[in-house]
């Protein structure tokens, strides 16, 4: 594994770090572009439509065209906003989402994976920083819908982070480590943790949907009541950054789910990165499937659901796991 701290200080090793970052960023952008394409196509099929099919073969360049449109749009900053905060809010939201990818092991050879001892916790901690970007963006917009949207978003992301973390603890208990690489190694020796941790897996799936602000918990941007939530006033590439954050988190959460419950890159016959891609795609497709099937939950039912249903379930799972681990 590449260790930055032991390399001598030279432009060459700096270039190495820079290239690594840029490669991951490009990879992430491609993944995000094609998950948006897959979302539109897949939901189209579910709703008996065709989906995007005009730009490029099978509409494959549709999202590229959309991104290009957003990038060349005029950068509008409304008059009454708090200029500095309005401009840096998308950055504060995006940077942690990209950093969170650093702990997720993409493949057998960990080229870009940080082997830190607290991988799963690191992910949770970073996603808490994104909440700042969302809150600041909504507040700086000086718009009541944006403010309500950002408040809902912050409260919801904070609340769902707790059952999410508790459902991870079950896996951590089984693997005996918070390091994501060790968790995969633990699953290679036994079965994928989705089988013994089925309750934790269900809690994780629901809580991660809430954490990602996706349907049926997409209240922060409920268009029928809040226009567009916290990014109402945003347009052009600042809006694109908020969208990018959302889909990078979708990818990161898919990676986390694959790593924690589906054995990550491990699997027979196929190479590691392909296994990882398949498992991540399963999670992403599940999210889109839910999005096409479920109506939005009522706002006053979401928080009690997180605190009074998901959290006790996760704690129950934790107790059972601990007892079984001690007995067996």
């Amino acid at each position: 594994m590449w260790n930055w701290a032991t390399h001598p200080v030279s432009w060459l090793s700096f270039l190495g770090m820079l290239i690594g970052t840029v490669v991951i960023l490009l990879l992430t952008l491609v993944v995000v572009m094609y998950s948006i394409y897959w979302q539109r196509k897949f939901i189209g099929w579910i709703q008996l439509r065709i989906g995007p099919n005009r730009v490029g073969p099978f509409g494959l360049l549709q999202t590229a065209a959309d991104v290009f449109k957003l990038l060349i749009k005029e950068d509008i900053i409304p008059n009454k906003v708090d200029r500095v905060l309005f401009m840096i809010a998308p950055i504060i939201a995006f940077v942690p989402s990209f950093m969170a990818l650093s702990v997720i092991p993409f493949s057998r050879t960990h080229v870009f994976t940080a082997n830190i001892a607290v991988g799963a916790l690191f992910y949770l901690a970073l996603s808490a920083i994104t909440i700042h970007g969302v809150m600041i963006g909504g507040w700086a917009s000086n718009n009541k819908y944006a403010l309500i949207g950002s408040m809902r978003s912050a409260a919801q992301m904070l609340s769902f982070e707790i059952p999410l973390g508790m459902s991870i603890v079950g896996v951590v208990l089984m693997a005996g480590s918070i390091n994501l690489n060790d968790i995969i190694a633990g699953q290679q020796h036994s079965v994928w943790y989705i089988i013994p941790q089925v309750l934790g897996c269900i809690v994780f799936l629901i809580a991660s949907t809430g954490e990602l602000n996706r349907t049926p918990f997409d209240l922060p941007e409920a268009e029928s009541e809040l226009v567009a939530g916290y990014h109402t006033e945003y347009s052009g590439f600042r809006f694109a950054f908020f969208m990018l954050t959302e889909y990078v988190y979708l990818f990161a959460m898919a990676g986390l789910f694959a790593t924690l419950f589906l054995g990550g890159w491990s699997g027979p016959w196929l190479p590691g990165w392909l296994w990882f891609a398949i498992k991540a795609l399963i999670y992403i497709t599940f999210q889109f499937w839910v999005q096409a099937t479920m109506p939005r939950m009522r706002v006053d039912k979401v928080m009690p659901f997180a605190w009074k249903v998901l959290l006790p379930l996760a704690l129950f799972n934790l107790v059972i796991t601990a007892v079984l681990k001690a007995v067996l």
Binding site: L121, A125, A128, I131, H132, M135, W139, A154
Partner: peptide, 15 residues
């Protein structure tokens, strides 16, 4: 430090 201070406490201050 990030989870408690940068996450929870700063967000509480902002709220």
């Amino acid at each position: 430090q990030i989870l408690i201070y940068a996450g929870a406490i700063t967000i509480l201050i902002m709220f």
